[in-house]
Design a protein around this nucleic acid. Sequence first.
DNA 1: TGCAAATATAGACAGCGTCAAGATGCCTTG
DNA 2: CAAGGCATCTTGACGCTGTCTATATTTGCA
Lengths: 214, 214
Amino acid sequence: MSKSEISACATEVKPYHHGDLRRQLLDAAANLIREEGEAALSMRKLALAVGVSRTAPYHHFSDKQALLCAVAEEGFRRFRRIVTTHLDTAEPAAVIDEAAIRLFIRRYIDFAVNNAEYYDLMFGGHLWKSEQLTASLKDEAYTSFKVYVDQIRCWQKARLVSLTVDPLRYAQVSWSTLHGMSRLLIDGIYLDSEAVAAMSDAAANMFWQQLQTA
Amino acid sequence: MSKSEISACATEVKPYHHGDLRRQLLDAAANLIREEGEAALSMRKLALAVGVSRTAPYHHFSDKQALLCAVAEEGFRRFRRIVTTHLDTAEPAAVIDEAAIRLFIRRYIDFAVNNAEYYDLMFGGHLWKSEQLTASLKDEAYTSFKVYVDQIRCWQKARLVSLTVDPLRYAQVSWSTLHGMSRLLIDGIYLDSEAVAAMSDAAANMFWQQLQTA
DNA sequence: TGCAAATATAGACAGCGTCAAGATGCCTTG
DNA sequence: CAAGGCATCTTGACGCTGTCTATATTTGCA
């Protein structure tokens, strides 16, 4: 009938048998990952958790991979909502200083650590290396990064940031820092949660200094 | 019959039936991971690859986890050998400048990207989150980080780096950057391999500036 | 009303980690 | 040199996994 658009993480479907199976699968998957880790998530357990048979999820997601992609997309939506809040609500030009950067960093790390089940999927090799990730997921990720670069360009335009800074390179490096810190914390390599704030602030100091005098 | 002393997952064994099974398992595991990815490594495939039965590896490693720990340890040995070369061969005080930092960063990224099969295990959540990693592996990792911090302290002692820099915080943040870049490259999120050098140098610039004027 | 599509189900298959028993070969000790 | 012990390797089995292939049920629409 309607041209099946490869249905990968498709638009709203309204299931009838079970209710809203698709949504429940996504939520249950995130919960399972949060509680038992990504490795412990299995399609069968997931199906059992929402009370359907093993193969029922396959009518909403072609793959386990597709399911994970959809969870990651949900993560990106939450990510954008949280991290870019100040862009929507206030003029960045009015507030940009080291403190603002500190806030941004803390928001980022906070999201990563407290939504690890999403962050792992969004920026983990599992999906990205597989070359099977949804086009919409790629878009979502690309947009998120673009917002980040644009923010820097915006600061530059407002003469709040040195024009000698290459926004793309700066974004790549600083995002690497944020991502690295997040990963080290999530993966349990950096354990001292007391030090998170100090580390964040040290990073902010570094970023700010670079923005001013580069 | 060398005594591989710190091998924790098993005492030094000298297999006779197969030859040096333990070593061959470690090498084959690294190869399999390199060629097909960590997820594709199975104990059965590994056993098949070296020509023994499925359960033979379990006489050398109690777990799949233990096997992976041993591979990671091998990775740490290579890592230290490559990254800390200039510490052993030359006086750091004589050469430390932005160019030296550039070199260090490139070495680090280079190792990570070209030895991804080891890097994934060494600094990936799979082992670290599991709380089952070998004590010797923890030591190895701790030592690597300590070398990194000490290097900064060394620079400070030589008055080449501002004393206002907190070596620990600086090490944490800058390592986060290196780790983040490595992960983003390995995981296929940063794809433009052309940009690696530019990114590395941008990071070096950032680090150097911080070291001088903080 | 009837038909096609959407949705759910059970059955089956190959692959996985790994435990339990049994077989094989080497080293040490008497 | 014989005997026992032990490290090593093998086969068998169990429960788990992802997912393919039917088959059954429900729904929306002509």
